[in-house]
Nucleic acid binder design. Structure first.
Lengths: 135, 135
DNA sequence: GATGTGATGTTATTATGTAACGTTATTGCG
DNA sequence: CGCAATAACGTTACATAATAACATCACATC
């Protein structure tokens, strides 16, 4: 079972702006899309976004989707069960869903152990067609 | 059990060159590294590499590592068990190992089924430290 | 007030990936 | 064979993603 802590980490202004953009988005955002959305707030360069994203990912409240080069807010940022997060990515509508599956985590740990591999983080992205798009 | 077919697909000249570069490499290669290696063979533009890579991935004899933006030759290109391939990626030495684990495939299918999601392909990349680097 | 630390801002650059267009090779068929 | 269809190829230009390097600012601590 996951440990819970209903506190969001302290955020700087830039981190809060980036996090807000991701939270109000209906789909993953690229760093440059975030930049464009935050120009009115004074953002002018990619690094401002990337630096905030780095911290947010470190805090565990934002995930990077490696196969999309895009970012999403964590579906449950108020808890610390951030170990093995998987995503389903619809290749038709772009919808992304976060999946937490304990058995999957166990399986990955076994694979790592079998290869004498010290696992740090897992990237699990399932690409296909979502229920809505299948009709 | 996997079906076997000890024939590599027909390749064009460019595809064979790119595949050869990946096969003789000791680590994943980026598209631009491949381009540089093949300049002597007449390659001049990124698209020549990307087009070959697209086909090789389609054939199933090359995999893309999404978290590295790099490509590797399949560890067993002569068989068709290309369904659910996982990779361990050492963040210290860069070594990549291909892992085939039937139970993992089953687990992912269950996750997809639970979400009424039609799974097309899975991206599984385990990042950490390999046995050699741990000493 | 000196100092250390972390966040910020800015410019320039590198790395990764595509669009658009035209040409060449090959294949299949009337 | 002649011809259409298709796929691969080559080239230029461009778009997107990410980082390097450097200066500055904010704030806490001693």
């Amino acid at each position: 079972m996951a440990d819970h802590n209903h506190e969001l980490p302290e955020m700087t202004k830039n981190q809060a702006l980036v996090y807000g953009a991701l939270n109000s988005a209906q789909a993953p955002l690229s760093a440059y899309t975030i930049l464009d959305q935050l120009r009115e707030e004074g953002f002018r360069a990619p690094l401002q976004v990337y630096r905030a994203l780095d911290k947010l990912v470190e805090f565990g409240v934002v995930h990077k989707l490696e196969s999309l080069n895009a970012f999403v807010a964590c579906a449950h940022p108020d808890c610390y069960s951030h170990e093995t997060v998987a995503f389903t990515i619809c290749e038709k509508c772009g919808q992304v869903a976060e999946v937490n599956d304990d058995k999957l985590g166990g399986r990955l740990e076994k694979i790592a152990a079998a290869g004498d591999f010290a696992l740090r983080r897992s990237i699990i992205e399932l690409r296909g067609i979502c229920a809505v798009c299948r009709g």
